[in-house]
């Protein structure tokens, strides 16, 4: 019965979550969060409202069923004086059937 419902709603789609963590550890605090929903017309946008994020760390998101599909690159060149991007980017996905 459940399988037939899934078929009627189409295949699972990839939800994406970009988390910018304080360090490359999955246990470090998140500094940035972008959620991308696989729905036509969806746009992630900067908000002027108080931030209420569902996760504090990458590990929190993993516990909630998100899978890491890209880890930050430890072998990337670094500079000990200059600053560039904020945090370390983890990209996570969740495959779900989306009801529109």
């Amino acid at each position: 019965m459940e399988q037939s419902n899934l078929r009627s709603q189409g295949p699972a789609r990839q939800r994406l979550l970009y988390l910018h963590a304080r360090t490359p550890s999955v246990f470090s605090d998140i500094l940035g969060l972008t959620r991308v929903e696989p729905v036509a017309g969806f746009r992630a946008e900067i908000s002027a409202q108080v931030q209420d994020w569902p996760y504090s760390t990458v590990h929190d998101a993993v516990v909630d069923g998100w899978q890491v599909v890209q880890f930050p690159q430890h072998q990337a060149p670094f500079d000990d004086c200059e600053l560039d991007l904020v945090g370390y980017e983890f990209i996570l996905q969740k495959m779900e059937v989306i009801e529109e």
């Binding site: 970009y18 910018h20 605090d29 998140i30 500094l31 940035g32 969060l33 972008t34 959620r35 992630a44 946008e45 900067i46 908000s47 002027a48 931030q51 994020w53 560039d84 991007l85 904020v86 980017e89």
Partner: peptide
């Protein structure tokens, strides 16, 4: 390279 950032902790509207 900032294109994957949306909301950042500590941002100030």
């Amino acid at each position: 390279r900032m294109a994957t950032y949306t909301n950042i902790r500590g941002q100030v509207p």
